[in-house]
Design a protein around this nucleic acid. Structure first.
Lengths: 194, 194
DNA sequence: GACCAAGTACAACGATCGTTGCAATCACTA
DNA sequence: TAGTGATTGCAACGATCGTTGTACTTGGTC
């Protein structure tokens, strides 16, 4: 139950941490971005690491819920499997621009693993990427049980699907997003099609 | 033609930049790591950004050459396509531990894109990942021409192969490396097999 | 041995930063 | 209106950092 000011602070801190990283983003800049006194940050979160932990957990919760909702919507009741997977991949690979700071922050975490509290990293990983992966794997497993796919290891298949679509789109930024996703889904279906 | 001291400096700076990131790695620490005066760094590279540029270009050249050599060795003359691809994937996904700092540094670059000289980023990207991707795509295209694979877009296929093997291994660190690679290669071959 | 480039040690500068204490202020409830 | 808890502005601290200038030393060449 974060108040309005806390919401503004978490959002602003996400932007600054994402753009500048943990070390470069100064407490004063974080406070100014949210129109808050730097003293308030210390009153609420103890220190800089506490604020960072709150920011990444808050953000990854939002993103995970959105991604899981996307999977539920498009893979819950499948009409045309290939078309639904393509739309799933396209929507996944073109996240709301609001989410760009989140994924940039994730890269900072992956780069800064030796300088971030391991408990924070573990909490983010479980509640974010792992939770989403399991949700996606559940859908794929269900589609496999229904005879629409032939999957031995749903968790690995979930990893493959994401890497063949969203990750590949990020790796080839000049190309047409939908074409890359379509090609990735085609690969996925040739490998996992029933 | 870097002298011994410059070699030691580049290697030590790679380690520190990789572990601590650009902002946290101080010039004095970088100098101490290599047993060099901090003044020498300024004499050689002008400023911190200049040293960073030299470090990432040097390191990505080494890694790219090693990866291209691996592709040449295993995909140059193919005996058993699936076995060769699996060994290629395993060797790619288990790089010499010497290369761990490089890949950690790459993550820092991807996270810090807004704070690094764009010319440095572009130079690294061209001489590193893009060069390797083109080399790998050339092998895949040749195998396709030879009738061992059926590939429309070799560059995209190269991206798929790497993501299905090395990237997937990194995403599932608890699992058996070779099993993950083997599954990834199986997916690749079902999609791109002749 | 003289010379020269390269490297070093040292001090100093301005700047930035995380963190704390304290007094003043504000919003809101009894 | 009095009181209470959250918020703020401000000053200050010790620490770290990038960078530069300068004088000194070192290693190798004529």
């Amino acid at each position: 139950m974060p108040t309005d000011k806390q919401r503004t602070l978490l959002d602003g801190a996400l932007r600054l941490f994402a753009r500048d990283g943990y070390a470069r983003a100064s407490i004063d800049a974080l406070a100014a971005e949210a129109g808050v006194s730097s003293r308030t940050i210390y009153n609420h979160y103890g220190d800089k690491a506490g604020l960072f932990r709150a920011v990444i957990l808050d953000s990854s919760d939002h993103v995970a819920e959105r991604q899981i909702a996307l999977a539920d919507a498009l893979l819950g009741r499948v009409v045309d499997l290939e078309a639904d997977l393509v739309e799933f991949g396209v929507r996944w690979a073109t996240p709301e621009p609001d989410f760009a700071p989140h994924f940039r922050l994730v890269r900072h975490i992956e780069a800064d693993l030796d300088n971030i509290d391991p408990a924070t990293v573990a909490a983010w990983h479980e509640r974010g990427p792992l939770r989403v992966r399991h949700a996606l794997a559940a859908h794929l497993g269900r589609l496999s049980d229904a005879g629409l796919l032939a999957i031995e290891d749903p968790l690995l298949a979930a990893v493959h699907l994401v890497h063949l679509t969203a990750t590949s789109v990020a790796a080839v930024p000049d190309a047409d997003r939908e074409a890359v996703v379509r090609a990735g889904v085609k690969v996925f279906l040739r490998a996992y099609g029933a």
